[in-house]
Design a protein around this nucleic acid. Structure first.
Length: 319
DNA sequence: GCGTCCAGGTCTACC
DNA sequence: GGTAGACCTGGACGC
């Protein structure tokens, strides 16, 4: 195992948000989803994580300095050297995006008042944001490893990719493993990827997505963020191995990524016949989500699953 | 112990 | 444009 790269504090940021905003719920969701890296740490309201900016590993320590009604986040940025102005600006923009700080959820909360299950979720998770990935490759690795696999194996594949190929960084007394860079994965053979990470047929998908990003043939996350959501998903689906489900996960304006598992949950929430063939069930839950919630459907997905994690954890296999 | 089924999708070939 | 079959692997289940 390689020694972690030591990073020093190079920048402090104070980020304002649109209320209501809950930092803790946004970066540390009740369903146990990590904010950015499965190897980040969260303790007493502070998160230590990181991502790559212009192929440079960046460490982030962040915590709330405000309230739900007057949100403010302090972020300390760590690097292996001073950041050029352009990279400082990139880090600040990306952090605000990943935190969902500038997302106005008033429209979603209005919608939530019209549905019992959402009114409850809004109450339980008030101020929580959907938090986009810092880059397309981080989202693609999650989406592809979730495909056609039981959760235990999905978790194992993703952790192996990080452990085998991700950068280890050490800062503020913590060590975090970052998402492997596309350039690193593009330099590894498909068979080696398959063997070291137990990826099966997914190895070629991940390798081809990495190559597309290195060539500049894939859209950047900030470009996707600026596009209409349907266009962003269309651009993502042009990548090999990214279908409707995966594009819904990766898109910065999250879609409604129903699969076999979540279709059964949402069939119950939406009052559909859960005994129908699973292919039909997935199509039906997608249609209902589109019709009732439009572009807020991603928030519906995240709020419902995380509210179940609080109220009915056994339904999610959480105990 | 062994065989079968199926799982938190996507692509390709074929019609 | 719609659909069947292939794709890796491993846990659960029946025998």
């Amino acid at each position: 195992m390689t020694q972690p790269r030591r990073l020093d504090r190079v920048l402090g940021l104070e980020l304002e948000g649109i209320p209501p905003y809950s930092f803790d719920l946004s970066v540390h969701k009740p369903a146990g989803w990590a904010w950015i890296s499965p190897f980040e740490a969260f303790s007493e309201g502070t998160v230590w994580t990181g991502f790559n900016v212009a192929e440079r590993p960046i460490g982030i320590k962040a915590w709330s300095t405000g309230t739900v009604s007057e949100p403010s986040v302090r972020a300390e940025v760590y690097s292996d050297g001073p950041l050029p102005d352009r990279e400082e600006s990139l880090v600040e923009t990306r952090l605000a995006m990943c935190l969902g700080l500038r997302e106005d959820v008033a429209g979603f909360y209005e919608l939530a008042e019209r549905h019992d299950f959402l009114r409850q979720a809004k109450h339980d998770l008030y101020g929580m944001r959907c938090t986009p990935f810092p880059d397309v490759f981080t989202g693609a690795i999650l989406a592809v490893t979730l495909q056609w696999s039981a959760l235990k194996r999905s978790v194992g594949m993703r952790r192996s990719l990080y452990l085998e190929f991700g950068d280890r960084i050490s800062f503020d007394g913590r060590t975090v493993i970052l998402c492997p860079s596309p350039r690193r994965i593009a330099s590894v053979g498909v068979e080696e990827l398959r063997g070291r990470c137990n990826l099966g047929y997914r190895a070629s998908f991940i390798r081809r997505i990495a190559e597309a990003i290195v060539r500049g043939d894939a859209p950047a996350m900030d470009e996707l963020y600026a596009m209409p959501p349907s266009e962003a998903r269309r651009r993502l689906r042009a990548l090999k191995g990214i279908g409707e489900y995966s594009a819904d996960i990766i898109s910065p304006r999250m879609g409604f990524p129903v699969d076999v598992w979540s279709a059964r949950i949402f069939a119950r929430v939406f009052g559909l016949d859960a005994s129908r063939p699973v292919g039909r069930l997935i199509a039906d839950t997608r249609r209902v989500a589109d019709d009732l919630f439009g572009e807020w459907k991603g928030y519906v997905f995240v709020y419902v699953i995380n509210d179940l994690a609080i109220r009915e954890p056994s339904l999610l296999g959480m105990g």
